[in-house]
Amino acid sequence: MKLLYFAWLRTRIGKAEETLDPPAGVTTVGELIEWLKARGPNYADALKNPKLVRVAVNREYVTLAHALKSGDEVALFPPVTGG
């Protein structure tokens, strides 16, 4: 699974992207975020406020209940501020 991080989520986690293979118990976006938070204090800090985390899977906005498939591109980012 390819993970992408943007804006302050990228700087707090310390990388723009990585490829990870979550365990079988991680089936939804919400479970993926919980699993990531346990990977280290940088992840826990970046993802501590769920209200400030937006998720796109394969470039579509999704909710925490969205079911993940292997090979998905999962992007985590803060609320957008373009325009």
Partner: peptide
Amino acid sequence: LIDWLKTKAPFWKLEETSAGARWVDA
């Protein structure tokens, strides 16, 4: 279009100010 774009299009602004750099809050 501009209202929708501001809350949906995946852009993020980082401002450099005299007090340092900071990400703009939505």
